[in-house]
Design a protein around this nucleic acid. Structure first.
Lengths: 186, 186
DNA sequence: TATGTAGTCTTTAGCGTCGAACCTTTACTT
DNA sequence: AAGTAAAGGTTCGACGCTAAAGACTACATA
């Protein structure tokens, strides 16, 4: 017989509620209401990332490239940023940005050249192709997000946004710059 | 003078509301309410991860080790799982789990041995030291989470939990197993 | 003009993960 | 029994990130 429950137990992992029940059993001092919010939040973010990643793949992009496109567009016309500024916004080290730009220049999403006014600086600029990719992703993403929130009424969406914003404010005020570099993170 | 605004503009990145305003300007077809929810969510998760990472570091743990401890405890007594099951729960390839176990066995957080009843299998088991670390993290984490939600009333916490759960349900139903491996992810 | 100093990016070495090939043990088939 | 397929882990090669060291430019001071 195909062994039923030997030591390395069944593979299926718990749902959110099951998971919280387990936490309660293993560690009594836990507020289930708090736990539910926090765990739902992180699960949701992971699921969304996975879904996002799939959509990006259909456009021939990966998550890393998408993050860069986003930041460049967010910087506004003329869609330029230095590697250092990009590093801060992406939460990466400057070294990682150097390598990432190597690849993205090769795939034609951005250009990289020295700043003529200050030759120690480098300017990364979005190409037309990069801008076009950004638009394509936005079209997919907004459809996906709208679909995700479909079950919520407009009032509920407002409430959710407001509650999340309050949490965000708390966490952003709380860790101003304990490290000095991660403060400017996202 | 230290150049005011040459090409690579000021370093400071936008707040959530600024960011949404920019998106609106760059891509008109966007529901600001939806955008606020989605972006607040991902920002919040990132900020929490960073905060978590700092706390773990003070206990000599990294994020990777913490994820493993969590899964083993969540599996319940006797806190055992096979590498394959761990891989699924962690969202990693089996190869990555092999290496991660190498390290965690070396640091004494888990043990690894072959299953005598089925010698193709391997059993990873939490050590007492690993269990103790898990407890320490839980103490810190629950305090942090309680602090994070401090500004919300019990009713608001309930509302937030319920709204997030509904979103989660939607995204979990929507992507049952497009890939066949990520389905069993978290 | 020369020199120190700070700022900006790149290079280097090491680590963790992935995808794919490989090996071992178990289960099924005839 | 023997042979084949399937399942569970490990090994190998490549890639992307980090931390630390290096290179280059601009600016202040003497």
């Amino acid at each position: 017989m195909p062994d039923e429950q030997p030591s390395p137990g069944r593979t299926r992992e718990p749902t959110l509620d099951e998971q919280i029940a387990i936490y309660q059993r293993e560690y009594g001092d836990l507020d289930p209401q708090v736990e539910k919010v926090v765990n739902a939040l992180s699960r949701l973010d992971r699921r969304m990332s996975v879904a996002y990643g799939r959509q990006l793949a259909t456009l021939g992009l990966n998550q890393a490239e998408w993050e860069v496109l986003k930041q460049l567009v967010m910087a506004g016309e003329p869609y330029r940023l230095g590697p250092g500024a990009l590093a801060k916004r992406l939460g990466l080290t400057p070294a990682a940005v150097t390598h990432r730009m190597d690849r993205m220049v090769a795939t034609g999403l951005v250009t990289r050249e020295r700043d003529e006014n200050n030759r120690v600086r480098v300017i990364v600029e979005l190409t037309d192709e990069g801008r076009e990719k950004w638009l394509q992703v936005m079209r997919m993403a907004s459809a996906f997000e709208e679909d995700l929130l479909q079950d919520l009424s407009s009032e509920e969406r407002g409430t959710l946004g407001e509650l999340l914003t309050r949490l965000l404010r708390r966490v952003e005020d709380a860790q101003p710059d304990a490290d000095g570099r991660l403060s400017d993170l996202d």
